[in-house]
Amino acid sequence: MNIQESNSRLLITSGDSLILFDFNSRKNQSVKVPPPELPPNLTKGQMEVLNKQDRTINSLSVSRDGQYIAVSTENKQVIIYDRELNIKKNFIVNRTTSKLVFSNTGDILVADRTGDVFLYKFNDEKNEPVLLLGHLSMILDVALSECGKYIVTCDRDEKIRVSHFPNTYNIISYCLGHEEFVTTVKIVQNILISASGDGTVRLWNYLKGEQLNVINTNQHVNNADLLEHFSKEMDKEKVDVTALPITDMQICSHSDCLFVAVSLFNYNGIQIYKVKTDTHEWSHHQTIQPVEIPHKFYLSSNLYIFNNNKLISYKYVNCSYQIDPCTQMEDFYKKFDYILKLTDNNFITVLYKRKFDNVQEYLERKKLRLETSK
């Protein structure tokens, strides 16, 4: 599931569906991902792969002017819609996308699971990609600076790379400090904010690669059993875990401060931190704990939390987010509850690196060879 808000419109993806809710007109609509438009000269094997029915949407992006919406799917499709959800482009990329974003000029940046980022020109009818940069591991998120001059990429190997855009061969800096995979990077008011599987949120001067501050979210989890249970489960897979990983991070700007909201693996709450933009000091502002573990959330002037059976809306009132019985959103959820199916939230566990000890196996094979050679 992906959620974004743009120009008083809420966009939600679930499975192979894209749903739009307009707060002003109170109208809503949904569309399903169409079959791929296959390029010519494909082999039979390639056609079978691209035609497979897994059209689950894995990434969502809205252009800066709000005029276009782009989604990518598990079967390597990228579809661009206009504001009315009419299809403008439908094309195939070489590898499954991990993240796509619009550039400031309306072109599409596509990061794939092998670690490459490609640029697709919006007006290029041939949809020929331009390779921008590459990582040695899976890229998990991409962010562009507000000025459009810099691109930030993060990966499974704890690295954050800052490059010039579009001349990405010119690397500005690396922001190093996370101890696990970096799932999310966002640039707000010239501050880079990152979230990781190590349970921390870090603030950066990304042009210098300097860490400005760090928030340890696990310090505000009031249930120590959660980490103990998770550590035992991951230990079975030979993974050492020292913190509950951050599964999502959302940021909202409020005058001279930022609100940073995070969700943690299997934690029944959304933590909200207040960060001063001038001093980069932070404080724990609020923890919202719905009845069930939040599956997905989105933070703006409002806070939307999805769990297993409903959508809960919170409004920012008197310096805090308070529950807002919004009949519009309740009606919206009831209409599309058959589409808004929640998937397993264990996806984040596959990002941990497994440790394999093959020395013992090697010694046993060597011993067997020596015995048979006698």
Rank of each mutant, 00 (worst) to 15 (best):
G115Y: 11
M47S: 14
F118N: 07
S72T: 09
Y338P: 00
F91H: 02
N223A: 03
I312C: 15
L244Q: 04
Q77Y: 07
T73D: 08
G66Y: 01
Q4A: 12
K276D: 14
N28A: 00
Q67K: 15
Q328G: 04
D155W: 08
N24T: 08
I339V: 08
T97D: 01
N123R: 05
K126C: 06
Q211E: 10
V317C: 04
K232G: 03
T247G: 05
E233S: 10
G199H: 03
N75L: 01
Y352H: 09
G269M: 01
T96V: 15
D82N: 15
S30P: 00
I348K: 06
S301W: 07
I312N: 15
K89W: 05
A261K: 07
G45Y: 13
H220M: 04
N2C: 06
K121M: 07
I187Y: 05
H254W: 09
S25I: 01
L136G: 11
H280W: 08
A224F: 07
T56V: 13
L370M: 08
K32H: 03
I293Q: 14
I172E: 09
Q67C: 10
K374P: 03
F265E: 05
Y316M: 10
L144K: 10
H254S: 12
E228Q: 09
C319K: 13
E330H: 05
E361M: 12
L351M: 11
D324Q: 08
K334R: 14
K238Y: 07
K121W: 05
F336D: 07
L119N: 08
L132P: 10
D155M: 09
E180H: 03
Q189E: 09
V214D: 06
K99T: 13
S313Q: 12
F332A: 08
K44N: 01
Q53W: 03
P39F: 03
D337K: 05
Y273H: 13
N2Y: 05
T13F: 01
V93H: 10
D198M: 05
I3Q: 02
K367E: 15
V62C: 11
P245Y: 10
V162Y: 10
Q289P: 04
V221Q: 06
L10E: 00
T73W: 07
V110N: 05
L207W: 09
I139A: 12
D225C: 12
K126Y: 11
F23P: 07
L85D: 13
E146K: 03
T183S: 09
V49D: 10
S373Q: 13
T96W: 13
K27Q: 10
T183I: 06
N190L: 08
K334D: 07
N307H: 15
E74K: 04
Y174H: 04
N223W: 00
P35S: 03
F347L: 04
F297E: 12
D112F: 03
L50C: 05
S63R: 14
L212A: 00
A70S: 10
Y304E: 11
Y150G: 05
C257V: 03
E84G: 02
